[in-house]
Structure formats: structure tokens, C-alpha cells
């Protein structure tokens, strides 16, 4: 096992997924990218992540619902979770934090600091 941080990232926008992949490579992460909530729920247990990064607005199952379901998987109750969202209004941010997220990263995000922001949340 490496010392890499195991990050599960759920994002339905392929372009952003690609950018994030670029931003996070060589930064000490083991990445699992899922393009939907359902996919994340299928693969999460096998991957056993250290931290979760979720987009909020997704077609099908949205970020908060995905998080809620992931939390029900054994040992997932206390895994730190981050949201990535274009919704930046304070009440929106507060609502997300209330769901148990450690941090809400706003879009557009700074690719150069993304890795550090995730690590800070651990």
C-alpha cells in the first residue's frame, strides 16, 4: 500500500473531471473518478476511500443524496467529505455544510490549490 490519499471523486461533467484529474496527478492521490452517484455507490466499498469529493448538481442522483447513501455503507460514516459546487451563496454553502461536509469548494476552482484544499480537509 502506498501512502497516497485515496480520493473518490464524483462528477458528471467530463471536462471538469479531466481538469481535476490533471490538477491532482502527481500530488500523492489514488483517484477513483465516478461520473454518477450510482457508479460511486457501486465502486465505493471496493475502493475504500480516505476522503470523498462530490459535485452537487448532477443529473440523476445529486451530490447530497449520493453522500447520504455513501454514509450508510459500513465504515463510511466518518469519512471526510468535500463538495464542489457552482452554488456559492452563503445559505447554499451552509446547507451543504449541514449535511456533514468538511468543506465546500466553489467552482470555478483554482486548479493550482485544489490538491492542498483537499489535503487540508483530512
Amino acid at each position: 500500500m502506498s501512502d497516497n490519499i485515496r480520493l473518490l471523486y464524483v462528477e458528471d461533467e467530463e471536462d471538469i473531471l479531466a481538469i481535476a484529474e490533471c490538477a491532482l496527478e502527481d500530488e500523492g492521490f489514488d483517484l477513483l473518478f465516478c461520473s454518477s452517484g450510482l457508479e460511486a455507490l457501486e465502486k465505493a466499498e471496493a475502493f475504500s476511500p480516505d476522503i470523498l469529493l462530490l459535485d452537487v448538481m448532477m443529473s440523476g442522483m445529486d451530490g447530497p443524496t449520493t453522500l447520504e447513501k455513501l454514509r450508510k455503507i459500513p465504515h463510511f460514516e466518518n469519512i471526510p467529505a468535500l463538495f464542489l459546487t457552482a452554488k456559492v451563496q452563503p445559505q447554499e454553502v451552509n446547507a451543504l455544510l449541514a449535511l456533514g461536509a468538511k468543506k465546500v469548494i466553489s467552482k470555478p476552482f483554482d486548479v493550482m490549490t485544489l490538491a492542498d484544499q483537499i489535503k487540508d480537509a483530512l
Binding site: D15, I16, C22, A23, A86, V111
Partner: peptide
């Protein structure tokens, strides 16, 4: 959303 991609890409 597209701006995020553009800015991210350019930044990288």
C-alpha cells in the same frame, strides 16, 4: 461550469 473547465485547463 464551462468556465471552470476553461480556467482549470488554462491554469494547468
Amino acid at each position: 461550469t464551462p468556465l471552470t473547465s476553461i480556467r482549470g485547463a488554462l491554469s494547468i
